[in-house]
Nucleic acid binder design. Structure first.
Lengths: 244, 244
DNA sequence: TATGGTTGTCTATATCAATAGACATTTAAA
DNA sequence: TTTAAATGTCTATTGATATAGACAACCATA
């Protein structure tokens, strides 16, 4: 395990720092040979903390479903994944990761109408205050939540797209119904921050977790903006790949 | 400020969660009108915590140099920034952010020779065990550390590039000396994780901070790999912009 | 079946994190 | 100069975090 030392008196409990480190090591494949996490006493020695502190960290990871402790045997690794999301002109949620999971699904969390803010209007190249359709969706891979997205569509062109999406289960298909056979991604911004309370709930994260945020504009083939979306990904479950 | 509620008993101290939130709000420009953070009593009410807890959070931000408390007046915002890094075929550290800061600098942290691991060999399309030159650099903007990069170059073609880099102060210029007038970025992978102890030291972060990690391959104009690098960015100081 | 290695549980203690309240000090404006 | 509003400092108390040690329970295997 790389970078063994941990920080004390920083407002982040030792057990949480250690849990984060072990999760990273698991995702990195450090324990692939045995399929198990090292014994608690070994970890306690490595991290220079008490065994009880290690137990708190492992309990947190067990709560996340990442490891499972078996008395007498050790602590088994249950899950280990980081989906690779290609980011390109043809970025779609389900495409590109189809070969990595058995099932992808997009769930509608909520929808609404709102007037375009100055920022949204600038991105979508419409007037401030113009009506927008807002879509909140949850992306799942093999029944595990991966991303949480808010999308805005110009309402004058895509009024009722929420219902269409609900029926089709895919934004790509809904677009087709509205006479947009294809669309491309223009600009994507990527940032990272700590998960807020909505992230924790929707993405089933533990506090202190990281979310990767992408902001993207999709345009139709005539270069007219059709969708602006902000997506929040569980950082320990995904990796972005940019192909030029 | 969005998402007011904070999580208790999660291994992350309230004061640190609140400090992170306030830092985000400052970077988001929420307090731009006044140039000040709301009064401690107001924040205590908003976050639903004791004023002393707010004071701990603000003390941490003051330590980072982000705010400065003045008795009788309030808490002033000292610094607010998130550099925008364009990611494209022409990604360079100094280019693209030149208009956002007064000075960019790249500092050599260390250098060495090593044999190519299987993974590095695959990326650079050379034989496993082939000699590599390793460069550890620190990217600074206006004297503030922004990124920490480790780069590998095939030693048979770029032996001594460390010294050239040290003399030139730029990888682009060093490449030119080795007969590589231009180079392009092939694939970039982006992940995020918590800062490790090296990040904390080199990037001057506080524990629990987030680093954005990019892995990139640069090739010359004949499509031959010349550099593979892993860069770690302080997430609260940067934003990646992808232009298609 | 006996043993070594592992996780599970309990008690006790010290330190950090958070709350609560009171009052001092400083600044800006009435 | 007075006052209101803001930060600074102090004491006290409670709960979470971390350490320490001992022993029970369980598993694989020699």
């Amino acid at each position: 395990m790389a970078g063994q030392k941990i920080q004390r008196q920083t407002g982040v409990a030792l057990w949480r720092q250690i849990a984060d480190r072990i999760r990273t090591s698991i995702n990195h494949g450090d324990f692939d040979e045995s399929g198990m996490v090292p014994p608690e006493t070994t970890l306690a020695l490595q991290f220079g903390v008490n065994r009880h502190t290690i137990r708190s960290a492992l309990a947190a990871l067990a709560q996340e479903g990442i490891v499972r402790a078996v008395q007498g045997r050790g602590t088994l690794i249950e899950r280990k994944e980081r989906l690779s999301f290609p980011i390109s002109k043809r970025t779609r949620f389900s495409q590109g990761i189809g070969d990595q999971v058995r099932e992808t699904r997009s769930v509608l969390l909520g929808t609404g109408e709102e007037a375009a803010s100055a920022e949204l209007a600038r991105h979508l190249r419409i007037k401030t205050g113009a009506p927008l359709v807002r879509l909140e969706t949850l992306g799942q891979a093999d029944h595990r939540p991966v991303s949480r997205a808010t999308s805005w569509f110009p309402a004058d062109r895509f009024g009722g797209i929420a219902e269409t999406y609900r029926a089709m289960g895919s934004i790509t298909k809904a677009f087709r119904e509205f006479g947009v056979p294809d669309y491309v991604r223009m600009v994507t911004e990527i940032t990272a921050t700590h998960a807020d309370e909505n992230d924790l709930a929707d993405l089933q994260l533990s506090p202190g977790a990281i979310v990767l945020i992408t902001q993207a504009l999709n345009t139709d083939l005539d270069n007219v903006p059709v969708q602006y979306s902000i997506s929040r990904f569980a950082a320990d479950r995904v990796r972005f790949t940019i192909e030029n």
